Simulated assay, not measured.
Amino acid sequence: MPQTAPRRAGRRSGDSTTRDDILRASQKLFGRNGFKNTSMRAVATEAGVDVALVPYYFGSKHGLFVAAMEVPVDPADQVRRATAGPREALGRNLITEFTATWEGPETGSAMQGMLRSVVNDESRSNAYGEFASSQMVPLIAETADVSLDSARSLLTVLFGVATLRYLVAVPLFTEMTRDEIIALYAPQLQRIVDGDH
């Protein structure tokens, strides 16, 4: 009877649990080290897989983070869509794009659940906070052609609305329709944009 060669020890290639293992490892490392200080190589080592499998499944560290944080819509895609139009419509486009995700039939409950978990879980809060600082604020500044300070102010308004309307459920915010929210905050966001130049 022929002998089977012993299986070599080492990192696993892709199998049925590899994607989940990478996700679990990334959640742990993003929570502990933040977005900036977590490399795809470190995630692969933690998961016990070949480093090439991380971009194979998730494309980039940004994609890995979005999956690990269970964000139903990539916020970078939202920003790019909102800033693709004319500058004079940027305020309206931003609040329209973000409220569409927060209240959409396919994304609303998942997005609100993600926001809730970020607020209630310190490690997720730290990871998402660093992601917003190192990725989202610079992206808004670049695509909207505004300063970092203005980009920070825009994000503050957007997530202030999200917190008060969807997490804390303050009646003054929840009693308004989405159209009323857009009508109220679009001019305020636009003033930040217009005041930048």
Results as ranks from 00 to 15, higher is better:
144 A>D: 03
170 V>Q: 15
189 L>M: 09
48 G>W: 09
170 V>H: 14
153 S>H: 06
18 T>Y: 03
45 T>C: 03
120 N>T: 13
66 V>W: 00
137 V>L: 06
191 R>A: 14
2 P>A: 13
40 M>C: 04
186 A>T: 01
87 R>I: 02
191 R>H: 10
135 Q>Y: 04
183 A>M: 03
1 M>N: 09
72 P>D: 04
161 V>N: 06
89 A>L: 09
102 W>D: 11
60 S>E: 06
104 G>D: 04
59 G>N: 06
117 S>T: 10
105 P>A: 09
31 G>P: 01
186 A>N: 03
6 P>M: 11
89 A>C: 06
77 D>P: 00
35 F>S: 08
106 E>S: 11
119 V>M: 13
124 R>F: 07
164 L>Q: 15
7 R>K: 15
110 A>L: 13
142 E>C: 02
14 G>M: 10
48 G>M: 11
131 F>I: 08
121 D>P: 01
110 A>N: 02
48 G>L: 10
47 A>P: 14
40 M>V: 12
172 L>M: 11
117 S>H: 12
45 T>K: 13
109 S>C: 00
110 A>F: 03
65 F>K: 04
23 L>V: 13
59 G>Q: 06
187 P>C: 06
41 R>Q: 12
184 L>V: 08
69 M>G: 05
74 D>K: 05
99 T>S: 12
179 D>Y: 05
21 D>W: 06
43 V>N: 07
131 F>G: 00
169 A>N: 15
191 R>N: 08
102 W>Y: 14
176 M>P: 00
8 R>C: 04
140 I>P: 02
153 S>A: 14
101 T>C: 10
73 V>Q: 07
80 R>T: 09
189 L>P: 00
164 L>S: 12
